[in-house]
């Protein structure tokens, strides 16, 4: 069951030649379907988009006449605003549908809602849904491009791509760089998608969490029988003070309060004591280390305020990178496929 959550449609690493001129994906459902050259293509395109965003008139006609629909079944500020703005900067028409205030409240099923949206002419459907795998269902149902903006505990590909973009900015190639991700590894779609993106770009990833929230089977080596889905370059540790030493980047994940009630997590104070990114802990990482957080933050729980707003923090840069990444993804999906 756990393996299904990780990657519903994972069929091994893609075999197609890297960096082909034509973009071969109609949808972006997770990062696991992208090979290294394709991830780099997204980052390269996002860099050009950043230049567009810096112009006095940040608006281009690249997606003129394209209708983009934001379909959000979960609360979201930055992802949704960022997709909406990305579409508008590229000249697309963007409509927003949220579960509250739409026919969803009247009991319409996901498939029916999506068919309706496709019927009014949406070329791209961007979906966030609490059920893992919902975007895959939609991609099979309609002819529009589908972008996964976060599905349950499964994937959040644009977040992982923007994190990769930030790291690429800081270090160039990521080969041999070590990234520590701290938080609820078992339930985090951000962590999952980041695992795919970062390891494919050559980084080593250390997952840090209290033992019940640590998918130890993901790490290779150390165990008697390796799990078939164990990833190279991934290690697990329940001791942040040990894992953070010499790291090139540290990413804290939001602690979801509902998990604390489920007895998987100790109290917020107990979690903070052992796993909060404090200035003292960050000082043990490499001197050039960057600090990241996908937001929204619980300052004082998983990250100290002084770290969140400190010199090593790239958290604000993550938000603006998110816009460029989402423009790049929209552009490649709609215009890159011949």
């Amino acid at each position: 069951m756990v393996t299904e959550q990780i990657a519903p449609q994972y069929e091994g690493p893609p075999q197609v030649a890297a960096h082909t001129a034509t973009w071969r994906h109609r949808h972006l459902l997770d990062v696991d379907s992208l090979e290294r050259g394709e991830i780099e293509r997204v980052l390269e395109t996002a860099r050009a988009m950043q230049e567009v965003l810096a112009r006095p008139v940040a608006r281009t006609p690249a997606l003129r006449g394209v209708i983009v629909c934001n379909l959000f079944y979960e609360a979201s500020t930055r992802t949704r605003a960022s997709f909406e703005l990305a579409g508008k900067v590229l000249g697309a028409d963007v409509i927003n549908v949220s579960a509250g205030g739409s026919s969803v409240e009247k009991g319409e099923s996901l498939v029916d809602t999506v068919k309706t949206i496709a019927a009014v002419g949406a070329d791209v459907v961007i979906i966030r849904h609490p059920a893992s795998g919902a975007p895959y269902l939609i991609a099979q149902t309609i002819d529009s491009h589908v972008i996964n903006a976060g599905d349950g505990q499964h994937a959040h590909p644009t977040q992982a791509l923007l994190d990769a973009f930030i790291l690429h900015d800081a270090f160039g190639r990521l080969d041999g760089r070590r990234v520590v991700i701290v938080g609820d590894m078992l339930h985090s779609r951000v962590a999952r998608s980041n695992l795919w993106a970062l390891t494919r770009l050559g980084a080593e990833v250390t997952l840090v969490a209290p033992r019940p929230l640590l998918p130890a089977w993901l790490a290779r080596g150390g165990e008697e029988r390796e799990h078939p889905l164990a990833l190279p370059n991934v290690s697990c540790d329940s001791d942040l003070d040990r894992a953070i030493v010499g790291a090139d980047a540290v990413m804290a994940l939001r602690i979801q309060r509902e998990r604390m009630r489920g007895a998987l997590l100790p109290s917020a104070a107990e979690y903070a004591r052992r796993y909060q990114l404090t200035a003292e802990r960050v000082a043990r990482a490499a001197p050039h280390a960057v600090v990241m957080h996908p937001g929204p933050m619980n300052e004082g729980v998983e990250i100290a305020s002084e770290v969140a707003h400190g010199a090593q923090s790239r958290i604000e840069a993550q938000v603006s990178a998110g816009l460029a990444i989402r423009m790049a993804v929209l552009f490649l999906l709609v215009r890159g496929v011949s």
Binding site: A21, T22, W23, T45, V52, T60, P61, G336, S338
Partner: peptide, 14 residues
Amino acid sequence: LYRDDLARRSTARI
């Protein structure tokens, strides 16, 4: 990003 034949070209590289 401004080409009128953007939709008809397969090599969208910016």
